[in-house]
């Protein structure tokens, strides 16, 4: 076998290992969600069950995820916070992007550094500083509001980067053309700039929501006595309660797989149209926030 053939074999083997490493743990977790065992484990297999989604144990107590009122409350909180984060982060990110694209020179570099710094800051620190600031300066304690604020600190930065990437491809003479033709600044923004930014606004809103939904490190410090889905999951995991946690995992994975398939199908159509290599560059933009 030639050296290159050997290399190719090696690559294939490595990829197989890598994807096994990526997926097998998830597979085990899913399997355990359907195991009748009282502990979240795949082995020993004690038979197939759906009781961790909906069901009752021998003494008639509910065991399923969908019967858990606290979980439902936590989910509702997560949705509320996510909506709040969209409402706060998208305008902040948009303002930041518009400001930075109108600035030149050193001021721009400095402001850019300040506005992206939250992305490079550990989430716990963002949570801590938010808590301290609002508690000491305004006597606002941890809770849903502070969760929105704390998460938006860095999610707005992600939104801003999305907007800046889109604005990079914006032809600024379009703004001037509109003004030259007699449009007011507001008309220009409404008819020219916002329609151009629409896809970026939609994806920024989506990503803001998803990042908020799964955030843990920052939320932990600013949530106070409230609960969110992620916080709730973490508590259950730590206490090692029942395979109901695995059932959540199943739902998460199912939602993700569906979304990913949808994305791939769309992407493939785009590839077919443009005859280019599929570039999951957007995959990175779809990435959850660090921290």
């Amino acid at each position: 076998m030639s050296a290159r053939g050997l290399l190719r074999l090696f690559t294939a083997l490595y990829l197989a290992l890598f994807f096994a490493y990526l997926f097998l743990p998830l597979v085990f977790m899913v399997a355990a969600a359907f195991n009748a065992s009282r502990f979240p484990t795949m082995l020993p297999w004690e038979g197939f069950t759906l009781q961790w989604f909906w069901g009752f144990d021998a003494r008639g107590r509910p065991t399923g995820l969908f019967q858990d009122a606290r979980m439902a409350a936590a989910l509702w909180n997560s949705i509320l916070i996510g909506a709040g984060v969209i409402l706060l982060s998208v305008p902040l990110g948009l303002a930041g992007a518009l400001l930075l694209t109108s600035l030149q020179s050193r001021l721009k570099g400095f402001l850019y550094a300040v506005l992206v710094s939250p992305i490079l800051t550990p989430g716990v620190i963002l949570g801590i500083s938010t808590l301290i600031f609002w508690q000491r300066a305004f006597e606002v304690g941890g809770g849903l509001f502070l969760a929105v604020v704390g998460q938006s600190t860095f999610i707005a930065s992600y939104c801003m980067l999305l907007f800046m990437a889109r604005l990079e491809r914006f032809d600024r003479t379009l703004e001037e053309a509109a003004l030259d033709l007699g449009a007011s600044h507001l008309q220009m923004v409404r008819r020219i700039l916002l329609p151009f930014l629409r896809p970026a606004i939609l994806s920024a809103a989506l990503i803001a929501f998803l990042q908020s939904f799964e955030n843990y490190n920052t939320t932990l410090f600013v949530i106070g006595a409230e609960d969110t889905l992620t916080i709730n999951i973490a508590t259950r995991v730590r206490l090692g309660l029942t395979p109901a946690v695995n059932a959540i995992g199943v739902l998460f994975i199912a939602a993700t797989v569906l979304a990913a398939i949808g994305w791939a199908v769309l992407r493939r159509r785009e590839v077919a149209v443009r005859r280019e290599r599929p570039v999951p560059a957007r995959a990175q933009r779809l990435a959850p926030a660090a921290g």
């Binding site: 003479t173 001037e176 053309a177 030259d180 007011s184």
Partner: peptide, 26 residues
């Protein structure tokens, strides 16, 4: 005055007639 830009600066998301009529629209 009205400016015809070096790169034309036509609004890509509008149809031809909407482009032409933009000044009237506003």
């Amino acid at each position: 005055t009205a400016l015809v830009f070096q790169n034309l600066a036509l609004f890509p998301l509008m149809r031809v007639w909407e482009n032409v009529a933009f000044g009237l629209e506003v």
